[in-house]
Nucleic acid binder design. Sequence first.
DNA 1: AAAAAAGAGTCAGCCATATTGACGCATCTT
DNA 2: AAGATGCGTCAATATGGCTGACTCTTTTTT
Lengths: 164, 164
Amino acid sequence: MADSFLPPSPLFLREAEVRRGIELLYFGYSSLIKRADDKLAGTPYGRAHHRALYFMARQPGLTVSELLRLLDITKQSLGRVLTDLQDNGLVEQKVGERDRRQRRLFLTEAGKTFEHELFDLLRRRMAEAYAEAGQQAVGGFWSVLRGLLPTDLREAVADLQQGD
Amino acid sequence: MADSFLPPSPLFLREAEVRRGIELLYFGYSSLIKRADDKLAGTPYGRAHHRALYFMARQPGLTVSELLRLLDITKQSLGRVLTDLQDNGLVEQKVGERDRRQRRLFLTEAGKTFEHELFDLLRRRMAEAYAEAGQQAVGGFWSVLRGLLPTDLREAVADLQQGD
DNA sequence: AAAAAAGAGTCAGCCATATTGACGCATCTT
DNA sequence: AAGATGCGTCAATATGGCTGACTCTTTTTT
């Protein structure tokens, strides 16, 4: 069944193993988000909106600049996306309490509902892959991916907190 | 050091674990290709060109329709990319021997050189992550990613052959 | 042999998402 | 009081996708 995906050999830095990893990472990522993309196609939103919604669900109350750092896009690009989501009542802002220059971002109830529908599509697929591969494999999956991140991103990802 | 990335618990299908996987997959993929993107920024080519070059290096002589299936884009989108690469002498076509409707795609020497420079950037980072995580983790990494692919893609990825 | 299907290329036009650089305003820090 | 920071917005541009239609060649089917 899985003969084409042999476990890595002791010489596991050879080109073939690296290419295999690149390809699985590329196709795995694409496959995961494909279902969400399909759902988004029936809405006025796109991937950029989804990513913003995702992190607002993940960390309610994060600031605009925190979101910019996570998405690694420019203020202008994010601005359009946030405007769309706010105009349609999926997202709302509150002025920061400690620092009133900051705008803290929250999903409205409608926003939470929509994000959760999208998340559920990802969850199903990811949960299937986790279950199929087994708990130990999941640890390896995390470990290798974590190794791909530069140090500052490792911290930023580790700091993400689940919102309610 | 890695306290924020605890190994998956027995209840490893809970939302937090799935979100962690989604995030690592997203940031891991982005981080991996970032260096190649930076190099591409100094050329007339972009990500789309890189992806096409990658698969032509991986499977020399693949046909246009095979490449279209792998990239999952339209003929028009690929057409522009291939035209650029052919006009600049990185790619050449040969009429298929068995089926003369087909156009088989090959990298020229210049194309091989350029692709290998890009690949090397990916290779370094991936090899570091493999080495840091260990051989067993790499097996888990592959296993989970493979589980994310639909059946037909699993076959297509398994069929990819390294060219010379 | 004729008809249908498949592989490839191309046209025109459109859309989503990203970019740079500059500027204004409110607020916090020094 | 001066400077730095957080945010929003302007205009212009690039990239890489898309649809739908049409042609040409070659292979397959009837």
